[in-house]
């Protein structure tokens, strides 16, 4: 997968799952036990900005959840992201470039500057408690043999339709649409992490990656990896 495609996915996932800023006043759920799961999601993005709806892209990605780790990876396995919750509640976030064996770190120091604080519940389930509470429960359904709540509502001017798996604290689907686009995230497969054939990249392996602080990008203009990362998209006009 090209880096550009990966970034599209990250954007799209973000659009669906992280549309609300994750500020400090979001509900803390540090005690909530969540099951360890391995999921495969599919993402479809359609644009309405043309006379006829146009499918922009469809893609698949993996999602793994442990009590203190969330990891995602594109279907090709080239790129991913990882969030780790440490013993004191801090959250370490890294973007993973598996082919380059490189991790880009976003340091806690620079997060306040960006008015940013992670909400572990939202990272673990893609929707915050506030968002879920905003959505009206329409009915109970069964999806992939599991109980699911169909919830609908509007958030930030966008219509949101969610099939929520309350036992797993995960979405079976999220459809978010406005006048310009429609993004659909759909759960394809979910298994306990212990029996999943597809595993996340081990932390030990990631610790062997080269690590770069994102704040250093501006001073690494000659670094081959940074050059590749930037030029991969920089020349590309949509």
């Amino acid at each position: 997968m090209k880096i550009s495609d990966f970034l599209k996915i990250v954007m799209a996932v973000g659009f669906i799952t992280f549309s609300l800023p994750v500020f400090a006043d979001t509900v803390s759920d540090s005690d909530q036990p969540l099951s360890e799961v391995a999921c495969r999601y599919e993402m479809k993005v359609t644009s309405f900005s043309t006379p006829k709806p146009k499918a922009l892209f469809t893609t698949a990605w993996f999602f793994w959840r442990k009590p203190n780790m969330i990891q995602t990876q594109d279907a090709d396995g080239d790129h991913g992201e990882i969030w780790e919750r440490t013993a004191n509640g801090s959250i370490q976030y890294r973007k993973l470039y598996h082919i380059d064996k490189t991790a880009v770190e976003y340091m806690p120091t620079d997060m306040p500057a960006n008015n940013m604080k992670f909400d572990w519940f939202k990272l673990s389930g893609m929707l915050s408690k506030e968002e879920l509470n905003t959505l009206k429960l329409i009915k109970i359904k069964s999806v992939l043999g599991r109980n699911a709540e169909l919830r609908k509502g509007n958030i930030n001017g966008q219509a949101l339709e969610v099939l929520w798996l309350p036992n797993e604290n995960l979405p079976a689907s999220i459809i978010r649409k406005d006048k310009k686009s429609r993004m659909e995230l759909r759960l394809i497969d979910i298994t306990p992490l212990s029996v999943s054939a597809k595993k996340p990249v081990a932390l030990e392996e990631i610790s062997d990656y080269r690590h770069i602080d994102a704040a250093d990008f501006g001073d690494m203009e000659n670094d081959p990896f940074v050059k590749k990362l930037m030029s991969a998209e920089g020349h590309h006009h949509h």
Partner: peptide, 22 residues
Amino acid sequence: FTIPATAGWASGSEGHNPTSFQ
């Protein structure tokens, strides 16, 4: 520099670190 309220970026922790522009 900060994540906007209607952001599409998953992490938002890096400010604006673009890799492409239109």
